[in-house]
């Protein structure tokens, strides 16, 4: 137990040894210094004069945005449909691609541990670490703006996410069930269909719905870079400072997010 002597020679209990204590203080000091430096950089890049004016500007924007321009909704039905399609078709496309990647990445099903598995893991980490907006930017440069670019962007972004969760589920399966199916003389594909698939099906369904929910959110903003959906209208309304339209679009996005979360919670509840 760490104990130190007081000036009069009595012993006092301390939570940590002196060395540990110093190390902790040093860590806090370095941490604080880093934070202060970061803050100074942000502060240096900021025009504080504008910031002081911010409450006034915020109030001004709010005043102009209210009430929302309800009649604009008639122009939004089609973009809303597009947004739904981007999320749903993108998720479906991602699932189709994620399943083989997951099987290649899971230690117990990969055809080759030293060649194919690292490749699958690379696909997972690179598609996962890049935001769908960046994928959309890239795809617009390649295949041109539109809903299709949005679908593909959502699909690519979701591959890594779905494949990661799925391959973790595959690695956690009960091996004895697989062994039992193998022992009957089943072929490799039959072992897959009878021994592995039933075990990961609930996880698969849960992952799909979960990702669909996230994709609804993401697809609402893809239009900002030109990849279709309601974000296009948001972007053009922002460009002409049509704040009543912006507020209507934001309300719709909020509603879509709440609805999709509700749907996904319901479906997941029904499956599990």
């Amino acid at each position: 137990m760490p104990v130190s002597r007081l000036a009069d020679g009595r012993k006092a209990w301390q939570r940590r040894e002196r060395k540990q204590q110093l190390a902790r203080w040093a860590m806090w000091l370095v941490g604080t210094a880093i934070f202060v430096w970061c803050w100074q950089r942000i502060s240096g890049a900021t025009t504080w004069f504008f910031v002081l004016d911010a409450p006034h500007i915020a109030g001004d924007i709010l005043e102009r945005a209210m009430p929302p321009r309800w009649s604009y909704i008639s122009k939004l039905w089609w973009p809303i449909w597009d947004t739904l399609n981007i999320a749903t078709l993108g998720t479906l496309m991602a699932l189709v691609l994620a399943v083989p990647v997951a099987f290649m990445a899971a230690r117990n099903t990969t055809p080759s541990r030293y060649f194919i598995r690292p490749l699958a893991l690379l696909i997972i980490v690179s598609t996962r670490s890049i935001n769908s907006l960046i994928w959309a930017l890239l795809l617009i440069a390649i295949i041109g703006p539109g809903v299709f670019a949005g679908i593909v962007a959502i699909a690519i972004r979701s591959i890594g996410f779905c494949a990661k969760l799925l391959y973790e589920a595959i690695e956690e399966i009960d091996h004895s069930q697989v062994e039992a199916v193998t022992a009957t003389g089943a072929s490799r594909w039959q072992v897959m269909a009878y021994g592995i698939v039933p075990q990961i099906l609930p996880a698969f369904a849960g992952i799909s719905v979960f990702r669909w929910d996230i994709n609804i959110r993401e697809s609402t903003v893809l239009g900002l870079v030109g990849a279709g959906g309601i974000g296009l209208q948001l972007s053009s309304s922002l460009n002409v400072l049509a704040w009543p339209q912006v507020s209507l679009i934001l309300l719709i996005i909020l509603l879509a997010v709440v609805l999709s979360e509700w749907v996904s919670a319901k479906v997941r509840g029904a499956i599990i």
Partner: peptide, 20 residues
């Protein structure tokens, strides 16, 4: 695989495919 058909196996923890 053909010969495995001639050997039935019974397991310790039953090893049934639980979700089927």
């Amino acid at each position: 695989r053909q010969q495995r058909r001639r050997m039935g196996m019974i397991f310790q923890e039953y090893a049934l495919v639980e979700r089927l």
